[in-house]
Nucleic acid binder design. Structure first.
Lengths: 233, 233
DNA sequence: TGCATAATTCTTGTCGACAAAATATATACA
DNA sequence: TGTATATATTTTGTCGACAAGAATTATGCA
């Protein structure tokens, strides 16, 4: 348990908050810290072997991204997944898929596509291996790389946040995620990348929309089945 | 200057960071702290009469929203306005105008429009009074109220951030902003509100787009004229 | 026993201090 | 005089401590 605390003295000055932030962020997105988990500052400070000050700064950052909720003067906990307003999430997700892909078709440079193709290969591997967790993260990385080729930091920022939310959401269901459908996603990705390469903005946008709607429909189907893990609303 | 510091003892526990955050945020958006201004923690702690700890947490929040840039172990300063990638900003702004207005037409409740109309009246007053600063802020408040009637926090959040950026940007030019054109904006607002009320999503979206493009063209014209204040790129 | 109040424990927000980086200044040497 | 090294100063990141609120437990009273 003190594998992290033992880094106490070999840590570079100023890296403290970033370490805590990165680790907690991953644990939240991977549901190792499920929604509603209490966040105890002193416990964290013991775990990471540092004082509460850098811990707190990391928590402020996490709160800024909506990953934790802080009640003033009272406890702070991992934020809930809002199943009631899910359509807001899907609307935003689909729109960001569309617009980032379209902008990528317009503004990408050839060298951008190398990275994108590498990530698409990773995604294909994950699908082939039926590794749902890897699928989730490689899919997010792929689409984020496409978004970055579109070179609009405002859209990329929101999209990144939405994909993270999705990572948390999908993690809820990843057991039921290994049917044959994802294989279609690989082909869809290939078509999207081709449309980007030929700078066909209209086609890229349309394919991205269809792709996004596929994904949303898939998630909604999972949501409807109600075989989700026991996590409070 | 110690009018803020004198609140030392009458301040409620926990309100410190919020006070500092709000004040600094306003000062940055109003260009009282122009881009590039150095942020000195000890100076702020003296000014607000509190220790550096709450100051720092406020700065972390500001950095999270991109309003200040923090070089590790080195100085932190008010973030620059990125004139080179302005088109990214305009793209995002126009899209958020469109989508939030469209969603408002779909999802608003009648009582939402009361608030919207009140803010539109404020905007009309500001235009009538040729008060450019008030125009900027009332216009932002109006469109944000419309966005909130659309009930998608992801879009509202991004839009809010963009409108803030715009507030900072327009503040650069507000002297040259008092020609006759804004009067058209009042009428356009009225049309948009009417379209929302009749739940004509398509019309609302189209009007919002035209409105946004008007505004963007107006800003770009100001940018091109080059008569901007002396602020470093 | 049930409920309201008081005492106690825990957690959070803030503070002052200190040490590591970085910056500025001074000194040495060519 | 100019450059390089050493010293001093400033600024930032972190720490341990403490006090205010909230949560919890204990106590008193009907």
């Amino acid at each position: 348990m003190d594998s992290e605390a033992s880094l106490r003295n070999e840590r570079k000055r100023g890296s403290g908050v970033k370490v805590v932030y990165d680790i907690l962020r991953d644990e939240i997105l991977d549901l190792e810290l499920p929604p509603g988990s209490p966040i105890d500052e002193v416990q964290l400070s013991e775990r990471f072997g540092m004082s509460r000050t850098p811990i707190r700064e990391a928590l402020v950052r996490l709160a800024g991204e909506g990953l934790i909720d802080t009640l003033p003067n009272r406890s702070t906990m991992v934020s809930q997944i809002d199943f009631l307003n899910m359509h807001s999430y899907f609307d935003a997700l689909v729109l960001m898929y569309r617009v980032t892909t379209q902008l990528a078709a317009r503004y990408h440079r050839p060298e951008d596509l190398e990275g994108v193709r590498a990530l698409q290969a990773d995604f294909a591997d994950a699908v082939e291996a039926q590794d749902a967790l890897a699928m989730i993260s490689t899919n997010a990385a792929l689409h984020l790389a496409i978004a970055e080729a579109g070179r609009n930091p405002y859209f990329t920022g929101l999209f990144s946040r939405l994909l993270n939310e999705g990572r948390r959401l999908l993690r809820l269901y990843y057991q039921s995620y290994n049917d044959r459908l994802p294989r279609r996603f690989v082909e869809e990705h290939d078509e999207i990348i081709a449309a980007i390469e030929t700078r066909d903005t209209e086609l890229a946008e349309r394919l991205a929309r269809e792709h996004a709607e596929q994904i949303v429909a898939q998630i909604q189907k999972l949501l409807m089945r109600g075989d989700r893990l026991d996590v409070s609303l």
